[in-house]
Amino acid sequence: MSVRLILKEDKLTAILGGEIDHHSARELRAEIDDTAANVRPRRLVLDFSGVSFMDSSGIGLIMGRCKLMQLWGGRVKIVNMSPKIEKIVSLAGLDQICTVAKGGKTDETNE
């Protein structure tokens, strides 16, 4: 489990790696929230390209970050999900609360 945070103007990108379960989600959450609360980005991009396993704890992680970003009117976008991760994400109906990039699309920097 790892996270690399990249801040570019008003966009914070969190590149996630490894396995996301209830155990690892706690650490990921702390790292993302620390930085996000400091810089208050307009957009938070969660990049799942390096995630090899995820259970519903990952959904909790996404939902929690959506709530956090809403505090200052920001938005969450989730990108680079494998079909396995998309399967869980579709169960949760996350497209109601954040932007879901479909079909393994990468994040477009200038949207």
């Binding site: 519903s56 704890s57 959904i59 909790g60 939902m63 949760a92």
Partner: peptide, 11 residues
């Protein structure tokens, strides 16, 4: 609480 999605059994 907030950080759990409530999807365990659904999954």
């Amino acid at each position: 609480g907030d950080e759990r999605a409530g999807l365990g059994f659904a999954v």
